[in-house]
Design a protein around this nucleic acid. Structure first.
Lengths: 171, 171
DNA sequence: CGCCGATTAATTGTGTACAATTGAATTGTG
DNA sequence: CACAATTCAATTGTACACAATTAATCGGCG
C-alpha cells in the first residue's frame, strides 16, 4: 500500500513545475510587448510599489540570489527601465531606482493581470485559496529561518532585519 | 474597484513561480545524492514507468522542447543512465532506453516522494485537490490544441497521435 | 521514380536559476 | 585604533527553458 509512488502523474511537484512554466508562457506574449521577461516583470512589480529598493531586498522578496539578479538588473538598466547605484551611506548596497521610462511602463502593464486571470478560467475564490496553499508550501519548503519571508510583503518602514539564510551546503 | 492589481503579493502567478522553485530546492539535496537534477529526475520517472520512450514522447509528457531535452539527455547518457539511439524503422526518431544503472537507481529514488510530501506538511486531501487545480490551470494555459495532453497520462498502447502544436509566434 | 510538404532532433542564441567563490565595505571586539 | 568576522553584490561555472533555425528523414502524390 505504498502511500507515495514514482508515477509521474502522481507527483504534485511535477504539476507545480508544469503549471508554473505554462503560466509563464501565457505571460510571454503580453510581456514581449512591454519588452520584459517574466522575472523582469516581477522586479517591476516591486518597483511600481516602492519606486526604489536594493538588490538585497529584491533578493528576499523574489527569493532570487545575486547570481540571478545582478545580470538581470544590468539588462534592465541597459533597456532603460532602472538605475543602479551604490548607496552613499553603505557602499556595499546597490540601490535600484525606477527611471521615468520604467514608471511609464506601469500604465501599459495594468491590463496584464486581469487578462491573465481571465485566460486561466478560474474563480476568484479558487484563486485566493490556491494562493494561500501555495504560500504554505513555499514556507514549508524554504530553508530554516526564512519560513516567513512574505511577512515582509509590503516592506513598510524599513527595519527589514531578515537574518537567517541557512547554508544548505550539500553532501 | 480594480478587480486585479499590480501588487506582487496579489499575484497567484508569483506564488506559483515561487512555490515551484522552493519545492525544486527541496528536492535538490535528495537528488544530488542520486546524481540527478530535477528535470533529469522527471525523465527518470517516465523511464521507470515505461523503460523506453522517444524524445517526442518525453517532449509531450514533460512539456519540454528538444532545445531543452537534447542536451539534458546527452548529459544523462554521459552519466550512464540512458542510451540514445535512432530508431531503425524511423531514423528521425531518437529512442531513449534505460541502462542497468538507470534501472538500479529506481530503488534509491523510492523514498524520495514520501520524504518530500512529509516535509511539505500537507494533507493527502489537499494534495489531491491541489494537483487537480494545477492541472486545470496548466490545461487552460497551454496553447490551443494541446489542452488535454495529460490524457496521455500513461501512454498505454502507443497510438499517441498528439497533433496540434500551435505556433505561438510572437509580435 | 522524383519532388514537396511534414515530422523529428539537434543546434544556436538569449535569459534565467543557483552553488561557490571573490572582493570590497562595514561592523563588532578587544 | 587594529583586525577578524560579516555583509553585500558581482563573478564564474553548470544546467535548464525556449524561440528560431537547420538538417535529415519520411510520406504522399503525380
Amino acid at each position: 500500500m505504498a502511500r507515495t509512488s514514482l508515477r509521474l502523474s502522481d507527483q504534485v511537484c511535477f504539476a507545480l513545475y508544469a503549471a508554473s512554466r505554462a503560466v509563464t508562457g501565457l505571460y510571454r506574449p503580453m510581456l514581449d510587448e512591454l519588452g520584459l521577461t517574466y522575472p523582469q516583470y516581477l522586479v517591476m512589480l516591486v518597483l511600481w510599489e516602492h519606486r526604489s529598493t536594493t538588490v538585497k531586498e529584491l533578493s528576499a522578496t523574489l527569493q532570487l540570489d545575486s547570481g540571478t539578479l545582478s545580470p538581470l538588473l544590468k539588462r534592465m538598466e541597459a533597456s532603460g527601465l532602472v538605475r543602479r547605484q551604490r548607496r552613499p551611506d553603505d557602499e556595499r548596497s546597490v540601490e535600484i531606482t525606477l527611471t521615468d521610462k520604467g514608471m511609464a511602463l506601469r500604465d501599459e502593464a495594468r491590463p496584464v493581470p486581469g487578462r491573465l486571470v481571465r485566460t486561466l478560467e478560474i474563480s476568484g475564490d479558487e484563486l485566493v485559496s490556491l494562493r494561500a496553499l501555495l504560500r504554505r508550501i513555499t514556507a514549508a519548503a524554504l530553508p530554516e529561518g526564512m519560513e516567513n519571508w512574505e511577512s515582509a510583503g509590503a516592506v513598510h518602514g524599513g527595519s527589514g532585519s531578515d537574518r537567517g539564510r541557512a547554508s544548505r551546503r550539500g553532501a
